[in-house]
């Protein structure tokens, strides 16, 4: 297995270079270093000299990808792309274009993201699995049909609608929790209730439908038929046999997203005023802060690759038939 992991990690290097290159190209197609300087220096009374000075101070006075004036390897290394990218591979994110230590900001802001993402994941899993099991238990009844209609409707509604409705009903009309905001320590609890409820409810449609499919796939297998033939009650068949086997794709799917929980939820964090990594990324895009954007995209890619490796490993753990080679 270790050889497999090492190989996968080596595969990750060209992927990360590619992701970094695409991010770089996309960003600079929309923004030029001059635009970035103007954004940082403000709109009023900015002189050309000030823009050039800002670019020089922040390393944006080089060519983007290829330095025709440099010799040898310098043609590739004396460029904005190389200078801004190479440190990322040592997970040194450097400073943002406004001068903040990105690594420190990420360490600070991942906790609020996790504070929402983890409960949403765990509570959502529990509810979705339970609901999916119940639907499967009552398959081919009005409960099944009604639930599927409800789930499709829930899937079709925009996440923003859940957020605004949640804030309106629970925060504004019923005065049960703060509409938005965040705090540190235990004070954070009251701010998390609403986003977690919204996160869970908005995920029920997709999650339950998916898990229902997993369960239905299992329920038609031979071992289930055998269990029933043995005279086991339907409930026991479901909980003891179907659930156990259907959990394999569920859990491996969860493992894949675990590292990405750090990255935060873009819209949720913005609407609820949660200072997580999702809002960090959105703010950076709005401020044209390339240093943060590339750091967050790079981190997201690393975590995604990590998640896929963990998924593969988890397969071997939950299903002894699977071997990594």
């Amino acid at each position: 297995m270790s050889a497999y992991i090492v190989r996968r990690l080596l595969y990750a290097i060209p992927i990360l270079i590619g992701v970094n290159l695409i991010t770089f190209v996309l960003f600079f197609v929309v923004n030029s270093p001059d635009d970035m300087a103007r954004m940082q220096l403000g709109d009023k009374r900015v002189t050309e000299e000030a823009i050039q000075a800002w670019k020089a101070d922040h390393g944006y006075d080089r060519p983007l990808l290829f330095n025709a004036e440099a010799e040898g390897l310098g043609a590739l290394t004396d460029t904005i792309f190389f200078q801004k990218s190479v440190k990322l591979f040592a997970l040194n994110f450097g400073t943002s274009d406004s001068g903040r230590d990105i690594g420190y900001d990420i360490r600070q802001r991942m906790w609020p993201s996790l504070a929402i993402a983890l409960p949403v994941l765990l509570v959502g899993l529990a509810i979705n699995i339970s609901y999916a099991l119940m639907i499967v238990f009552f398959r081919a009844t009005y409960i099944d049909v009604g639930s599927v209609v409800l789930l499709v409707a829930m899937m079709s509604i925009s996440g923003l609608f859940y957020i605004i409705s949640g804030q309106f009903l629970i925060g504004k009309l019923f005065h049960l929790v703060p509409i938005s905001g965040y705090d540190i320590g235990l004070e954070a609890f009251k701010f998390l209730i609403l986003p977690v409820i919204v996160g869970v409810v908005s995920g029920i449609g997709t999650g339950t439908r998916l898990y229902r499919t997993f369960f239905l796939e299992e329920i038609n297998r031979d071992y289930v038929r055998t269990a029933r033939a043995k005279g086991l009650r339907e409930r026991i068949v479901l909980f003891r046999h179907v659930l156990k086997n259907a959990l394999i794709p569920i859990l491996t799917g969860v493992v894949a997203v675990l590292p990405l929980l750090f990255m935060g939820a873009l819209i949720t964090e913005s609407f609820f005023g949660i200072p997580g990594l999702g809002s960090y990324t959105i703010d950076a895009i709005n401020r044209q802060d390339f240093s943060i954007v590339r750091a967050m995209v790079f981190l997201g890619s690393v975590l995604y690759i990590l998640g896929l490796i963990l998924t593969d490993i988890s397969y071997t753990m939950v299903d002894p038939r699977v071997r990594l080679s």
């Binding site: 804030q167 504004k172 703060p178 913005s270 609407f271 609820f272």
Partner: peptide, 18 residues
């Protein structure tokens, strides 16, 4: 001063006296 990026929660919290 709290960060309030969206106008809807900002307005509702003002109406609630916060």
């Amino acid at each position: 001063y709290s960060l309030e990026k969206e106008s809807i929660p900002y307005w509702n919290k003002f109406l609630q006296g916060y």
